[in-house]
Nucleic acid binder design. Structure first.
Lengths: 344, 344
DNA sequence: AACGGCTATTGAAACATTTCAAGCATCGTC
DNA sequence: GACGATGCTTGAAATGTTTCAATAGCCGTT
């Protein structure tokens, strides 16, 4: 009767001598069924090795038990920390988390979103390639709970969770100025990326308000936010004529900073004495670098957790209002900007 | 008639003036439906914004379109590279990939597996906390296609994909011996971890066959394979009396090696002149370290891709035989073992 | 005009669950 | 001993697809 099939509620019901509905009740509202039959049903389940079919459950109940996060760049540990924060929140709410990776490709992002729509996930968290992409509007229009992570989107068409990147740029450069640097490079790009633009803006603002010459804040553009690009920026830096060469660099993220650090040390520079370096994100490897990296810390896990809470609110609370949450970054000073034995 | 609901095949059929079955055919075997009606149906879908309900599809068709990977440690980039390899293979097969993370906790692993069973995923790839855990047998017994990644399991109860860790240990230590080191530390632990034990075994084998004194291969145990543990190992290393202190260290993975590297440089040692260091895995940050790290490379993405292919074979090919695939590791020599300007 | 062979479409059953109104005991109360 | 009330259990409908046997239409042959 069960020939090889994986057992269904029907089989359990038969084995326990009760009806379908009772088995379902045991799973979904155990309090309405008497202790005696509950126990009988549970034993039957265990004996048969019954595992509830989630597709059928979801089809009938109309509600799924999963959240999804579409991350921007799988090679950047920052996003994995964000994902971990989401996962923790999801675990608390007894939900599963689907993790996808767009690898910064808009087409791939769209494929993932389409599939998530088919899965009828409860909500989608995303760090988008382009926050203005029309396929994101599409989601809102469909009424899928949506939260933008680490970016913001025009108007309040949906929730977002981000970090004050302008402020991040300010504190990074302020720190360098305090250390006595008068010629500083900003390494990052492409500046069409929201974060890069804002971190640069913050850097320029504080530089100006400190009364420094704008020409002494040098923009060193990169093609991407990777270690390799950081190295290449280092080479360009070394190629500058000595009187124009900066004594410090503020990198738009830690991967760039690590690349720059590596290239500089390899070229015989002393860090921080010949070149001070500040990164952004404070990923785990920042502290673990051979010269521990000063960095602007974002509350990565917190970011993910907050985003998950927003998406759950949107999914469950009918009076939900879209919010733009913003966290404040914080400078973590380490050896890459502060000489050993030299007081702050 | 459609009041707010998300449209179903039925709505599409009505809008296009055809039957349910035809709409389904348009999606699943477009070749059997005439160009004219196909076009009509497709227009109706676009107008209504129809998105197929995957739960219903899966319930009826009995087959899901997802694979799952349960990774061991989300903080280790190695596993993300493996995941990327799986993802690529999944993409080629037009499947989605569910990524879970057990964070080395057996209980969490079990929760994930249970949920994946409920989802009726096509197959499960896993780097288990303990390859002998009974809940893995449970999966095999249920007939879920299963592949163990980066570990092996007794007998041929299921497929596995791994790297020859004994050989990895041999080539690492052989390389150090070639560089003239006569006193070498092995850093890693706990040695209940399969990889750690086998890498250590390989190290001991080659050490002996080179005719060196076993007492000069020093085992420095760690609690986990993390950067912090690497630093702590560095402190213990520094604490050894000079005549017993090794001139080289072979670390069971790159995170340990990076921690050791950082601690050593911070303590004023020159790498590789005072201490040569070899890691294992060749994660991206290995090459990017301030002293680029010599490491034993595992074909990480290849590992994932091969595992995905095995699981797909098991899922689709009735004549599938379990296989234990093993890749060979390869030494990547960099500055952490080879002095600049000194020929290999 | 009947027929056979195509191709394109249809209709109904099936998938495994949840939900809910209705039914059935059992019990205490008058 | 009738009556509600209470507490469990049941049976059937509903969810959105896919699948497949059956049918309808069409064309060319005889």
């Amino acid at each position: 009767m069960l020939n090889g099939r994986t057992p269904s509620v029907k089989d359990v019901a038969a084995a326990a001598g009760v009806s379908l509905g009772t088995v379902s009740n045991v799973m979904n509202r155990p309090e309405v069924v008497s202790a005696r039959t509950r126990e009988r049903v549970e034993r039957a389940m265990a004996e048969l090795g019954f595992v509830r079919n989630e597709s059928a459950r979801q089809l009938r109940a109309g509600t799924s038990r999963t959240l999804a996060y579409v991350m921007l760049d799988g090679t950047n540990p920052f996003f994995h920390d964000v994902a971990q924060g989401i996962e923790n929140a999801a675990e608390d709410a007894d939900l599963s988390l689907f993790i996808c990776n767009s690898n910064s490709r808009s087409a791939r992002e769209e494929v993932h979103l389409d599939r998530l729509l088919q899965q009828r996930v409860q909500g989608i968290l995303i760090t988008p390639v382009d926050p203005a992409a029309p396929h994101l509007d599409e989601l809102s229009r469909r009424g899928v709970p949506l939260v933008i992570v680490d970016r913001v989107r025009g108007a309040d068409s949906c929730c977002s969770v981000s970090v004050n990147d302008v402020l991040g740029g300010r504190i990074a450069v302020e720190h360098l100025a305090e250390q006595g640097h008068n010629r500083v490079a900003f390494v990052g790009g492409p500046d069409s990326l929201g974060q890069v633009g804002e971190r640069l803006q913050g850097a320029r603002e504080i530089w100006q308000s400190l009364g420094k010459d704008p020409d002494d804040l040098i923009y060193l553009p990169t093609e991407a936010l990777t270690v390799a690009e950081g190295r290449s920026a280092g080479e360009r830096l070394a190629g500058l004529p000595a009187r124009r060469r900066p004594t410090a660099a503020f990198c738009a993220n830690d991967l760039l900073a690590l690349g720059l650090l590596q290239q500089s040390i390899g070229a015989g520079l002393r860090v921080p004495d010949d070149l001070a370096i500040v990164g952004f994100d404070d990923i785990e490897f920042a502290a673990a670098a051979a010269v521990p990296l000063t960095s602007v810390r974002q509350p990565r896990q917190e970011l993910g957790r907050a985003a998950a809470q927003l998406v759950l609110d949107e999914a469950t609370n009918p009076e939900h209002r879209h919010q733009q949450l913003q966290f404040q970054p914080e400078l973590v000073a380490r050896a890459s900007t502060v000489s050993r034995g030299r007081a702050l």
